[in-house]
């Protein structure tokens, strides 16, 4: 076994290779979401706990920057590959059907992947502006969260975005198991359930935060 760069390029230019890229970057986001959610849930533990978590996170320094660059790269690769696949798939049927009905294989998640993906991108931009690039000198992160969610319009936008994220994950997580070839006949129903459970976990986990905050303020 040896590294073969030609073979690697060939792999990435193939249909399955591009799916693999989507799967691996998607998996990266799933792992990120778990850690992100784990951190966010500390809000439930109150002001001090959450602020000290944020502080400890920032002591990581260069490691944190590295992780941020990593996430950015994942994002660029996931989005550009996804966009290219979308274009290719569109081109694969130059003449559309006059009448087309679904046969029962598609789900809301599967049929809206490019669109939910696009909506998530918009959400991320707002999210970064509101929480990441926001002026943090005179307030704790806990306060920022509280203030941001005091705007009911934003809260609704956030919760809706989490529904979109969950929809994306519901198909995405199962889909990556299928793409990586982990799926098999016996496990497929289990994987489907795991995928839905995971998407609910992420959706409710994040989505419940603004609700909690609205309740305590």
């Amino acid at each position: 076994m040896h590294w073969n760069s030609n073979r690697f390029i060939l792999l990435l230019s193939s249909s399955i290779g591009k799916k693999l890229v989507m799967a691996i970057t998607g998996l990266g986001f799933c792992i990120f979401l778990i850690s992100h959610l784990a951190g966010n849930l500390i809000i439930y533990a109150g002001n001090d706990a959450f602020n000290s978590y944020a502080e400890r996170l920032h002591t990581l320094g260069p490691l944190l920057i590295l992780a941020e660059i990593g996430l950015l790269l994942l994002g660029i690769i996931h989005i550009s590959t996804g966009a290219y696949l979308f274009y290719q798939n569109f081109r694969a049927r130059p003449v559309r059907y006059k009448k087309k009905r679904n046969a029962g294989g598609r789900t809301i998640g599967s049929s809206t992947m490019p669109y939910t993906g696009f909506l998530i991108l918009i959400f991320i931009v707002f999210h970064l502006v509101d929480f990441h690039f926001v002026e943090k000198a005179d307030r704790s992160i806990y306060q920022i969260v509280l203030e941001t969610f005091s705007n009911p319009g934003y809260t609704i936008f956030y919760i809706l975005s989490m529904v979109v994220v969950a929809t994306h994950i519901d198909h995405g997580f199962w889909s990556l198991l299928q793409t990586l070839g982990i799926d098999n006949l016996e496990c497929m129903p289990v994987f489907r359930v795991i995928s839905s459970a995971f998407s609910l976990f992420v959706g409710i986990g994040f989505g419940s935060l603004p609700v909690f905050i609205t309740l305590i303020t």
Binding site: K19, N89, A92, R93, N102, G105, S110, T179
Partner: peptide, 10 residues
């Protein structure tokens, strides 16, 4: 020139 699978199960 076929498209790519997006696991839609159709």
């Amino acid at each position: 020139g076929f498209g790519n699978c997006t696991n839609e199960k159709e």
